[in-house]
């Protein structure tokens, strides 16, 4: 289980309805179903991931977020989750609006581009960072909208999105010591619990 997913579980009430945008192979939805009796739906575009998620007995709809989420009615879910996909969608700001139209609350996780390693890489080499966690080159990366913790919070303020909680995880299993104090510098992954 990815660290960010383990973290956000506690924000999801047992028995609630959850929509997982870009649910992958459904590992997280299965956990929520089995441990929190959540009624979940996932959307995904990866063929192998969809089959794997169906085999887990989950409800998965093949749908591309970039083509809109208008088929999901207003406030039809308790929580809409988007883990590690914000940076890969065409219009992250619109997706955030859609998340909070469809769900009462949203949970977003993304790789923080303000992390000191990224800054160091760019600062010393003058090249776009490539690492174990972001293994792509600038021209072939699916991650087309990188942002930092500060960028995300500025967008939330501009959109009147309320941040209920912020959490961070580092690159290791240990909770990064400085990340809660200086998240923009030390959070590898930023996690936000949001609402309107």
């Amino acid at each position: 289980m990815r660290l960010d997913l383990a973290h956000i579980q506690r924000w999801i009430r047992p028995g609630s309805r959850v929509l997982d945008l870009g649910c992958g192979d459904g590992e997280f939805l299965q956990l929520l179903r089995d441990q929190r009796q959540v009624r979940g739906t996932g959307i995904e575009i990866g063929e192998r991931e969809i089959t794997a998620a169906i085999a887990r007995g989950l409800n998965i709809v093949e749908q591309n977020m970039d083509e809109g989420l208008g088929n999901f009615p207003d406030q039809s879910f308790d929580t809409v989750v988007m883990a590690h996909a914000l940076q890969a969608v065409h219009f992250p700001d619109r997706v955030l609006d859609e998340m909070l139209r469809i769900g009462r609350e949203g949970i977003v996780t993304f790789p923080n581009f303000g992390h000191w390693r990224c800054r160091l890489y760019l600062g010393t080499r003058g090249r776009m960072p490539v690492s174990r966690f972001m293994p792509y080159n600038w021209y072939d990366t699916p991650n087309i909208h990188f942002c930092t913790v500060k960028d995300f919070e500025a967008l939330c303020e501009q959109k009147n999105i309320r941040i209920l909680a912020r959490d961070v995880v580092g690159n290791t299993d240990r909770q990064p010591l400085f990340a809660s104090v200086w998240p923009n510098l030390f959070a590898a992954t930023a996690i936000y619990h949001i609402t309107r």
Partner: peptide, 19 residues
């Protein structure tokens, strides 16, 4: 088929869809 899926989603029925 997407019309079927969208109606099922709006009706809160469990649905899985593959294209």
């Amino acid at each position: 088929s997407r019309e079927i899926v969208n109606a099922l989603i709006a009706a809160d029925r469990p649905v899985t869809y593959a294209e």
